[in-house]
Structures are given as structure tokens and as C-alpha cells.
Design a protein around this nucleic acid. Sequence first.
DNA 1: GTGAGCGATGTGACCGTGCACATGCAAGGA
DNA 2: TCCTTGCATGTGCACGGTCACATCGCTCAC
Lengths: 337, 337
Amino acid sequence: MSSASERSRMPSIRDVARLAGVSHQTVSRVLNDHPSIRPETKAKVLDAISVLDYRPNLAARALVTSKSNMLGILSATVGEFGPTSSIVGIEDAAREEGYSVSTLNLSATSPEAIGSALRQLAREQVDGIVVLAPQVRVFHVLRGTAVDIPFVSLQTASGSDGVSLSADQVAGAKTATEHLINLGHSDILHLAGPQDWIEAESRMRGYLDALREADLPTFPPIRGDWTADFGYFAGQELSRRRDFTAVFAANDLMAIGMMHGFRDAGVRVPDDVSVVGFDDIPVAAHVAPTLTTVHQDFPELGRRAVRLLLAQIRGERAPEFGPLQTTLRDRESSAPR
Amino acid sequence: MSSASERSRMPSIRDVARLAGVSHQTVSRVLNDHPSIRPETKAKVLDAISVLDYRPNLAARALVTSKSNMLGILSATVGEFGPTSSIVGIEDAAREEGYSVSTLNLSATSPEAIGSALRQLAREQVDGIVVLAPQVRVFHVLRGTAVDIPFVSLQTASGSDGVSLSADQVAGAKTATEHLINLGHSDILHLAGPQDWIEAESRMRGYLDALREADLPTFPPIRGDWTADFGYFAGQELSRRRDFTAVFAANDLMAIGMMHGFRDAGVRVPDDVSVVGFDDIPVAAHVAPTLTTVHQDFPELGRRAVRLLLAQIRGERAPEFGPLQTTLRDRESSAPR
DNA sequence: GTGAGCGATGTGACCGTGCACATGCAAGGA
DNA sequence: TCCTTGCATGTGCACGGTCACATCGCTCAC
């Protein structure tokens, strides 16, 4: 009820110092828990802090230390399930370590857009950047840009020398394809992601590896755009062909759309064609037929990214964790030949 | 190739001033485009800026102005499609206005958790907060907290005096229910969201309004938790009852799960039971049967939130936009009685 | 006894901006 | 002509922290 606009000024460390009867520097030492502080002095200071409801001004700290305690997320994904889940993991891990998180969504992935996004993040003085931009070309821009902020990427580029990590996409895709092979399928198509995407390439490689090892014929992949709508279109088109009995789709959305396309064209899943997806989005277990797919732990991926990035920032040795395992979820959409 | 760790110091406005032969204050004026600056002076300064590749230090600016040019997002949603899409809209709009965005995910919605999240955001000196925490109780904490940072909420609380906005959930839910009524259904169940959620209440109200106006019987709603898994469970349970011919689910995920439950129990959709969802998530158009649902423009909602928030921050009059329209997407899951 | 060493604390400068105020100069009205 | 007014610019300080260095008292070894 009383005036809310009174706000004389937020208390500073000097106010705290005055109240506690010490110097401002002593207060600063308490805040950064410096070793040589007498316990009773510390108590006095902490007392004054809570009396005044003092909170350190992060801008001032950032100014003098030129560290912002903030991580940036550079995201070039529209808001799909996977990346979004990873972002949650990133934020949690970052907050746990005392970092705040500034997100920047890329609408375009042109070099200019990426460059300006990076500069923006640099202006904000983020201490490090997590890149969720799975396009190969983003990598080139990142390497080329002279902004020397530490960064990690959630996706592994093929011959990546930089720090990055990822679930083992190749292995996951290989497992998925082998699953179809074990069911007796020998003519297996691949509905791939866009050419430029790292994950699309990895998943395709896994598919090709599995077929090659089994001495089965490979088909030129159909290039999709990750969307269910494209999957639908592809399903309708494919229904005209009858030279295959199974399809491995590079993500669940396309798989689900494709099943719809098949359905509309009179092709039955799994009776006529088996379908396997990738990601295990929440609805995958509930669509009709339920979708066989490859599960991966997106939040954990995000958490690992943060740990890696912080090690880099602090100059510590990078923690070595093996590739994140993926697991096959065997459901109704895949059946024996 | 050359040393990257040389970094003597970033250029400051004084460096720019020296190079341009003016005072640092003149540089500052150019940066904030102050009216009384001679064009040629401005040109000289801009020249020096680009030569030095100068970038303003946001921390220093934040320190002196005690404005951070940063908005906070307080999100208590796990990463579902709707809120996530809105966040994209928020970020775009914010960046467009020159604000950066700091996201904070709430894992728990206890008053303590909310309080500490708010304080964290306050420490970061965000100029305003967009709240994506549709739980009623979050509102109470927000009102109660003494942090006087402007905020808007993406969801409208029933008798909300504070600034907030939302798609017209009640109208959308009413339309959905009326759609079922028009198809000839008279016994319509509602699979609701959790009790505490604002949107759950609004959608239930729309459902009840429609039934009341049509003089049809209402049933006690089934309380769900938004997840497809719960929907599946509910579908199986409901299959034992035969006192209804249609269900309006409070979101698509539950609707899809429920259709799965029905399917497993031998109940056919839409032959035996019609189903309508809410949100229009990307797979809704592709599941079997395709799901009739209510579409809403999540990104636009986020953009509006930012415009409202900025008006509040700048002390301008709040832009008045009517409730965001929702549209019914009539698909296969609903059929005449 | 005396100086080195260390623990506990204080002092002043500095980080890069914006703000309040001062200054100089040209234009315009009395 | 002189004073006012307004434009264009400069000067110094404040913002709220941290850092480097100084200070002071005490212990300990020679």
C-alpha cells in the first residue's frame, strides 16, 4: 500500500561496510569468501548484509572483472522437441554453476546473421557460448569469426577439431537400421534430413554403414526438411514405388507424417511397410501405429555441454565422457518381413 | 594464425574520442544519438568507431544507468510445444527492440523456488519479466513479492488486475465444444488439465459454458496432467464407461494419448467416440485419425507480451489488442453422432 | 632482541559509461 | 549594443564493485 517508487538507492558494499563497522574491501572479501577473514568479522558482515537486504550488483562486478557469469545459447532450431529439451538441460546446469543464460534465436542461418548474432552475444560479454546450430555452414562461420569466446557445439561435425559432443547419432541410426535388417527387411529406404545438417549426415551414415555391413543394397536417400508435412508428402510419393519394405526416417516428425501419407495412399504400416524414426518425441509412443524409434537423452546432452564449456572457460582439462548412448524403442510400426 | 591471446584491452569511448579528436562525452552522445551533434562531428566519431572496431560495454552502461536492456523469462513449463513457441516469439520481439533475453526455468513451483528465481532475475537487473508460469499459485507469489520489476504474464488469471494477456482460451474451448454439439453429440466429457493451471480452468469454463447454453448435461471433468501418457490411461479407463459419445481434451498431447488408449481398448475414433484437442501441435494433423483441435498463434502471443512489457517499462500507455483469436481445425477425429 | 613472515584489514585507484554542469560561440530581440 | 537563448561541445564525478598495495600486530626462528 505504501509508495513503491520511493527506492532511494540499492545498498552497496559500502553501506554494508559502514553498518558492520569494517571497510568495503572486507565486505568484498566476505562475498568472495576469501580465506583470511576472522569468523566473527564475517558474521558481522553477513549480519549487515541480511539487515540491509543487500544484493551484489552484477553489472558492477562484470565491469571490473570483465566476466559476466553468463552463458549464451546460440540456437538455429525452430523450436523442435530435441533442441528445446537440450536447452532445458543447459539452463539447469548453468544455473547450478551460478551462471545465467542468455538465449539468442537465429531465424536465418546466413553467415551475416550468424556473425551479427555472435557479435551481439559478445557485446553482452557472455563468458561462453553453447551452439545449437546443427548446420555445417554455421561451423565454418564460427571458426572464421574472430570473436574468441569459448564455445561448444551440441553437434559433432565430421572432422571437428574444436570441442563438441553429441549423442552417438551414427551408432543410433545404425542400430535402427539393423533392427529392420534383423526383422528380415532387405530393401530399406532412408528419409534423410536436409543436406546441410550435421545430424542428418550422421544418421545417414549409420544407415549406410548398417546396410553395407549386411551386404544389402542402398538407395539414394530422400532429402526431407524434418517436418511432418514433408513426411506426408514423401509417404504419398513413395506409395507409388514398391521396391522397398521398410523406411528409416531421420526424425520422428517425418516418420509420423510419412505414416499418414502411407495411410492415405492405402499402404499399411507395419503390414506393408515398416517404419522407424529417430528422437522418441513424447507422442511417438501413442500414434497409430506406435512408432519404433531411437531414444536419446537431450537434457543430459545439454548438461554435458555446459560442463565442457565451463571446463574450457576455467582452463581446466575437459571432462571426458563417452558418446551418449542411444536406445532403440521397439514399437508397433516395425514388424517382421 | 597470429596470436589470439594478445588482447591488450578493448577500446573504450575514450580511445574513440582520442582518435576522433573529440571528448568522450561527444562519443557517448553519438552512441545515444543525441540531437545536437554536428553531422561532420558525428561522421568523424563513427569513423573512429569502425576503425577501432569499438563496441559499447553493456556492463558499464548497465552500471551507470541501472538499466540492463535485458528481459527475463520466467518459465515453469517443461518444454512443451506451446510455451516453447511463445518463447521464440518473445525473443524475436525483444531482440528487435534491442533487448536481450535471459531465460530461467523453474523446475519446482514452490513459493520458495519462485521467490529465489525472481531474486535471481532481479540480481541480473532485468528491466522486465515475462512470466510463462500458468499456475495460479505463481501469481500469488508474484503479487506478494516485493521485487518491483515490471512483469507481464502470458496467461490471464481470472480476476487479474495486473497486466496480462492470452489467447482467448475460454472462447476457443467453447468453440471446440460447440463443434461437437453441432455434430449431434449430447454427452460430452472433458479431459481437463491440472487444477492449479489457469489455462486448464479457462478451457474447462469454455466447455461448461457451451454445454450450459445448449442445455446439455455436464460431467465432472477428469483431471489430467497434460501428458500423453495420462491421456492413454484415461482412454483405457473411459472405455469401460459408455455414457458419452465425445471427449474434449484440454490439450493435444492428452487427446492423442487418449485415442491410443481407446484404440487399445477397442473403442473406435471417431466411429464410437469423437475427440477434440487443443493447441494444434505439429503432429496433430498427421496422427491417425488426424486430430480436430483448436489452433492458437503462440509466437504472436509472445510478441504481444513483449510489446506490453516494454510499454510498461517505458511508462507508455499499454497497447490495447483484443484477445488473440483461436481457430478450429476440423479433422478426422470428430464426426457426426 | 630483531627482523622475517603471515594473517587480518584498510586505502586508493580503476573498470567504461552516462549525467549534471560549465563553457564557448552564434543568432536574435530589445 | 548588450543580454538572452540555444546549440555544440568539454569537464569532472558517480555508479558499485575488484585489485594491487600498504598497514598493523603477532608469532617464530636465529
